[in-house]
């Protein structure tokens, strides 16, 4: 409960924030650089004197948007592959599960870095620096995290497709697509929602990691990870600069993970003792 409130507060802050805190994210004031929290700058300033609160509100929008969008991609791909594997009775199911296992043993971060490295310039030319990177990061993070969802969906489908109500639908002449969409999928959604919730947190971490390694969004786009990356060379003189974005990532991730845990307790009948 507390984490839901916390997460809502965080979302509200990044959505409504810019209308209340009307400081530009890129006003440079070198004289006021590296100041700790004060009334004029509640979160302090960075080395160029840019207001950190404004930058974090802006970055939070991107970080949370990436998290949600990547989750949607991974849930979509995972559900599609899991459903196909769960419904097929032949070689397709085995092939898809082999693919899932293969993807599970891929080294995620190196591959993520390699994909970004290879496709960065092409997409940047097509959709502009921010849009291109956004699409790339969302697709790549989502595309490398669908495997748990696919496994869950397949397991659910394997048991659900033999249930009487599905058989009844089949006997009434429902097409396979209708059986899946109207009858099986709604019943398989519980674990998918839990996995999706946790995927949001994982995607936020993945995006911050990329930005932290200097390979995410362009330098003038202050995502939380990017602010942390810029701050890490000034730890001795401006620790506040690193603590606020790091804290924000931590709070978002912990809150989402706790919500996922709570949902599991609520939705999953199988409880530990």
């Amino acid at each position: 409960m507390i984490s839901a409130v916390l997460l809502l507060l965080l979302i509200a802050a990044v959505v409504i924030g810019p209308f209340i805190w009307r400081v530009s994210i890129s006003d440079i004031d070198v004289v006021a650089g590296l100041q700790g929290p004060s009334l004029a700058h509640p979160f302090g300033t960075d080395d160029l004197g840019q207001d950190l609160l404004a930058r974090m509100i802006y970055g939070g929008r991107i970080s949370l948007a990436v998290g949600l969008a990547a989750m949607l991609v991974s849930v979509f791909v995972g559900t599609l592959i899991g459903a196909l594997a769960g419904m097929s009775r032949g070689a397709l199911g085995y092939a898809l599960m082999w693919l899932t296992d293969l993807f599970l043993s891929l080294p995620q971060l190196p591959l993520l870095l390699m994909l970004i490295y290879l496709f960065r310039d092409g997409l940047k030319a097509m959709f502009g620096p921010e849009g291109g990177i956004f699409i790339l990061i969302v697709l790549v993070i989502g595309g490398l995290r669908w495997m748990p969802v696919a496994r869950l969906v397949r397991a659910q489908f394997l048991s659900l497709r033999e249930k009487e109500f599905v058989e009844a639908a089949r006997a009434l002449g429902a097409s396979p697509v209708r059986q899946v969409v109207r009858h099986i999928l709604p019943n398989a959604l519980g674990p998918v929602i839990i996995a999706g919730t946790i995927d949001v947190a994982a995607a936020i971490i993945a995006e911050s990691t990329l930005s932290f390694l200097g390979l995410g969004f362009p330098p003038d786009t202050p995502t939380w990870g990017r602010i942390l990356y810029d701050a890490k060379d000034f730890l001795d003189i401006g620790p506040h600069w690193a603590l606020f974005p790091g804290g924000a990532i931590f709070i978002a991730v912990v809150a989402i993970n706790f919500i996922g845990d709570g949902l599991r307790d609520a939705l999953d009948a199988r409880k530990v003792i």
Partner: peptide
Amino acid sequence: AFIGFSLPTFFTGILFILVFSV
């Protein structure tokens, strides 16, 4: 444990440097 795996490694690394080195 919950806090531990919600803390990304890059943030714990920075916190450790801040506390133990700086």
